[in-house]
Design a protein around this nucleic acid. Structure first.
Lengths: 128, 128
DNA sequence: CACTAGGGCTAGGGTTCG
DNA sequence: TCGAACCCTAGCCCTAGT
């Protein structure tokens, strides 16, 4: 088995746009489109098919049918090893590219930059 | 939820022998082996995997899949809806009580307090 | 050989129950 | 509360059919 390559939002959006353009099933056509080729460079037509299946509830691709989702609603509970992103946190994260989430290190770097800018503004204000 | 079927010693020994033969991760191969098939008749490959995980303290299970490593490296991966806590992030989080993690809002409030303290120290230093 | 549909498999986090 | 057993699903693989 190859190590899992998790789909990024960018890839997911490219796939959705590709399906909108070429319809589901024409995976190779999507891959060959120059608009999506670079984004989906390390995805195969099989990968596209599998991802589309997952996006549609794991059922079959053309006629979706699947039992009701049993997934837990995104409440405020403590999540071991993970920090859950709440809706009201989006304000803090809106400048981070991936809307689906990001690793904490990236977020921390983002916050550091914000702090440095804030400090610079304060210093500038006091000097002039 | 299905009623729990507790593992017998015989099943456990068969699982261990199967892992010795086929390496952990090849659960279906173990089930198909005639030496173990009858003993593990009412266990699925998922059951084998889960049991092996329990036998090994809940950690990583598959050390020898036939084709390649399937385990995803635990670094920097993008996690939709979740922000993974990295080892080098513990520095930021060590003052938060819950060792298992916390929701992002709590962490953000913690960071805000740290920033206010920092600003106060700077102001104090400049005034005196 | 190239491509797609669909079933099957594993890993790993989550959930339930004793 | 804790852990064994079970559930859920993303991503990948395998095979049949065209």
């Amino acid at each position: 088995m190859a190590p899992k390559k998790w789909w990024t939002s960018k890839e997911e959006e490219a796939l959705k746009a590709g399906v909108k353009e070429y319809k589901a099933g024409n995976w190779k056509d999507i891959l060959k489109d120059p608009r999506f080729a670079s984004i989906l460079a390390n995805r195969t037509n099989i990968d596209l098919k599998d991802k589309w299946r997952n996006l549609n509830g794991g059922g079959c691709v053309s006629a979706g049918r699947r039992k009701a989702s049993t997934s837990r609603p995104p409440d405020k509970r403590i999540v071991p090893k993970y920090v859950q992103v709440q809706d009201n946190d989006l304000e803090y994260l809106k400048y981070i590219e991936d809307p689906n989430g990001t690793d904490l290190d990236t977020m921390m770097n983002f916050l550091k930059v914000r702090i440095y800018i804030l400090l610079f503004c304060i210093c500038f204000h006091w000097f002039v």
